Amino acid sequence: MTGEPSHPVHSGDWRVSHTEREAVVERLSKAAAEGRLDLTELDGRLERALTAKTYADLVPLTADLPPDVPPAPRQPLVLQGGLSGITRAGHWQVPVKVVAHGGMGGVKLDFTQAACGLPEVELEVHGQAGGVTVVVPDGWAVETGQVNPGLGGLKDKVTSPRLPGTPLIRVSGTGGAGGVVIRHPNSWERRKLRREQPR
């Protein structure tokens, strides 16, 4: 029969497109930025990528690199006060966003022992009937310009100046009937923190 190859063509012999070459170039550049390739390796691989004609030329250039998987979207921490209320305190990891619904029982959100390496945290509050209380360590800053006080009001009692390296908590939402209180630890909470510190 005419018009058919005398032997099957292996996928490695297939020709690559400009888009596929550019995708490999982008992956190699990212790998170098991550420290996975030094500049000499990067230059050599980029030259081979730009002149690659088949998959057999292109595939080995990224074979020793981990898959370029996009990060999973970070889900907000949602706290529901419900009927009996809820407290988030002690040692916990602060996400990019926290949503607090006071419900009937209220929400207390205590950042004093939380781990937070973020420059900013988004906090969305809905006081509802039970209200929301937010406790922040000395040196943390809070911005409350996007909060509607509602019937319960907004009490921002944070007074200490922001210290270098600490986060800014941007608060939005509404006070509802129960209101929103943002403050530093009270005297009882400070005594409790001192007792829990390792000696």
Results as ranks from 00 to 15, higher is better:
Met1Gly: 12
Gly3Ala: 13
Pro5Gln: 05
Pro5His: 14
Pro8Asn: 13
Pro8Lys: 12
His10Glu: 14
Gly12Leu: 08
Gly12Tyr: 03
Asp13Trp: 12
Trp14Ser: 04
Arg15Gly: 13
Glu20His: 11
Ala23His: 09
Glu26Trp: 04
Leu28Asn: 03
Ala32His: 09
Arg36Phe: 02
Leu37Asn: 02
Leu37Thr: 01
Glu41Cys: 04
Arg45Phe: 08
Glu47Ile: 05
Arg48Cys: 04
Thr51Ala: 08
Ala52Lys: 10
Lys53Cys: 04
Leu58Arg: 14
Thr62Met: 15
Thr62Asp: 13
Asp64Met: 15
Asp64Val: 06
Pro67Ala: 15
Pro67Arg: 15
Ala72Gly: 11
Pro73Met: 04
Gln75Pro: 00
Leu77Val: 05
Val78Cys: 09
Gly82Tyr: 02
Gly82Gln: 02
Leu83His: 13
Ser84Met: 07
Gly85Met: 08
Gly90Trp: 04
Gly90Glu: 04
His91Thr: 14
Trp92Lys: 09
Val94Asn: 15
Pro95Cys: 10
Lys97Leu: 07
Lys97Tyr: 01
His101Ile: 01
Val107Met: 09
Lys108Phe: 00
Leu109Trp: 02
Leu109Arg: 01
Leu109Ala: 07
Asp110Lys: 13
Gln113Asp: 11
Gly117Thr: 11
Glu120Met: 10
Val121Ala: 07
Glu122Ser: 15
Leu123Ser: 04
Gly130Ala: 13
Val135Ser: 00
Val136Lys: 00
Val136Met: 00
Pro137Tyr: 08
Gly139Gln: 10
Gly139Phe: 10
Glu143Thr: 07
Asn148Gly: 08
Lys155Gly: 05
Arg162Met: 05
Leu163Cys: 07
Gly165Val: 06
Thr166Phe: 10
Pro167Gly: 05
Leu168Tyr: 01
Leu168Phe: 01
Leu168His: 00
Ser172Ala: 12
Thr174Cys: 10
Thr174Tyr: 03
Thr174Pro: 06
Gly175Glu: 01
Gly175Met: 04
Gly176Asn: 03
Gly178Leu: 03
Gly178Cys: 05
Pro185Leu: 11
Pro185Cys: 11
Asn186Ile: 03
Arg190Gln: 14
Leu193Cys: 04
Leu193Ile: 06
Arg199Asp: 14
